[in-house]
Design a protein around this nucleic acid. Structure first.
Lengths: 153, 153
DNA sequence: TTGTAGTCGTTACAAGTCAGAACGATTCTC
DNA sequence: GAGAATCGTTCTGACTTGTAACGACTACAA
């Protein structure tokens, strides 16, 4: 390969991305959450009252997957399915107080995770990296806060 | 969530990483290769004559998975299993001329992929990004050229 | 030498995950 | 009101993956 120049940025990006995803999964496992559950919980909190189908299209997952995910969060009392009185087919999803409290802990974990990943950089470098990554995310039209991982979430 | 500051670098990293991985998978699909096959082919080329078990531990995959992967490359004449005369249990893996030629095309695809991913940055920014990502990869002890994706490869 | 333990590659098996089709309940349209 | 369409759910089939057993072969010990 053309390793005379070392790996390209794209390769480093996927390498670091999967590494970071793995570390994050380990961290939130302490909260007994999987990455898909975490993403779903955040998506529900970001737009309360959304229907499952709306979330399915937003997250890019088949509706049948959402059922199991919502079930898991519902059974633990983190999320509620409220019947929409105007259209009783829809289930309006809301985060419970317990879910809100857990979101706070998720935020703490996310912060620690971020510090861990970028720990080798000084503040100026961190800021520069953040700017460059944000620029790329915008350029490729990535939805803020949503993973493009079709299979994982 | 703490989205008042926007997403952290770690989140952007996983988001861009999975996105880049998906785009790369699409590109090499034109060569009728999957990402795991591509990684394996490169690993064999990087260290010719290695045994399958050595590769399994290097890539972090169970040996039983390697069998199917090597089978796929072997059937297409890209890779050879040569019997090691000193220890006939081992299969020394080598890339065939056809495999070498395909590696050349993979390198071209990788270059185009890299330009695509970092296309929104000017040369100075690309260089800066490359430096920062390389620093992080070293800090986290990532093996050069090997994905930490336990499931994908 | 013989035999016993250990290693390598392979195969067989079981568990889990996922997408797509089919189904009831409900609503919209004509 | 009747039929088409929508939402959530369930069911089913295909696929993937790790673990465990198996045969071939080697290394070490008596």
């Amino acid at each position: 390969m053309d390793d005379r120049n070392g790996p390209g940025s794209a390769f480093l990006l996927t390498q670091l991305g999967t590494y970071a995803a793995g570390r994050f999964a380990e961290r939130i496992a302490d909260l007994e959450l999987t990455p898909p559950q975490t993403g779903l919980l955040r998506a529900i909190a970001a737009g309360p009252g959304q229907s499952q189908q709306a979330l399915a299209t937003l997250l890019g997952t088949p509706p049948s997957r959402l059922v199991a995910l919502v079930d898991g969060l519902d059974e633990r009392g983190l999320v509620e399915r409220r019947r929409n009185p105007d259209d009783r087919r829809l289930h309006a999803l809301h985060v419970t107080p317990a879910g809100q409290e857990l979101l706070g802990r998720i935020a703490q974990v996310g912060k620690a995770h971020d510090d861990d990943i970028t720990g080798a950089l000084d503040p100026a470098e961190r800021s520069a990296l953040r700017g460059l990554l944000g620029k790329l995310a915008v350029a490729h039209g990535l939805t803020p806060g949503v993973h493009p991982g079709y299979r994982h979430l």
